[in-house]
Amino acid sequence: MDMADRSSGRDATIEWFGATTFRLKVKGLTIFLDTWLERPSNIPTYLKVEDVEECDYIFISHAHFDHLPGADRLAKRTGAIIVANGEAITVMRAAGVPETQLQPVSGGERIPLFHKASRDAAIAKRQSDEAAGIPPPPGPRLPPVPHHSEAIIDVHVWPAFHCMLPPGDHANLPEVIDTGTVYTGDGGDPYACTIDITRNMTYGFGGLMKMPAEHLAHLPGDFQSFLPYMNDREKNQYSFYDGGQLMFNFLMEKEGGAGPTLLWHGHLGCYEGVMKLMEPKPDVTIMAIAGRGNLNGRPFDGSAAQFAVKQLQWLGEPRKVVWCLHDESPIKPKRIDTRAATELVHKETRSRVAELEHVRVYKIFE
Rank of each mutant, 00 (worst) to 15 (best):
G273K: 00
W158L: 12
K310L: 11
D337L: 01
F22A: 01
H346P: 03
A4T: 15
A122D: 04
D5V: 09
D283Y: 01
T338F: 04
D337E: 01
I89P: 00
F32M: 07
V91A: 01
G79E: 02
L216G: 10
P143E: 05
P280A: 15
I197M: 10
I289D: 10
I289S: 08
P212L: 07
H267Q: 09
K48Y: 04
D186M: 15
Y183R: 07
R73E: 04
G139S: 08
T261F: 04
Q245S: 15
M164D: 14
I197F: 14
T30V: 15
G269K: 04
T342P: 12
G259W: 05
L68T: 06
R73Y: 07
D186A: 14
R126K: 11
K310A: 14
P212R: 08
K27H: 10
D120C: 02
F365D: 02
N231E: 05
S351Q: 03
L277D: 07
L142N: 12
E15H: 05
E357R: 15
P159S: 01
K27N: 12
D11P: 02
T30G: 13
Y46L: 08
G185L: 14
N172E: 15
T20C: 01
H156Y: 09
F205N: 12
D154F: 11
I197T: 15
K332G: 00
I123Y: 11
A71Q: 03
L37W: 05
A124H: 01
A171N: 14
H358L: 06
A304E: 08
V284T: 01
M1I: 15
P135M: 03
Y183H: 14
A341R: 06
L315Y: 06
A122L: 10
A63S: 15
P318W: 13
E130T: 00
T181Q: 00
R39C: 00
T342N: 09
K334N: 10
K254Q: 13
E109P: 04
M92Y: 14
K25D: 10
M92H: 11
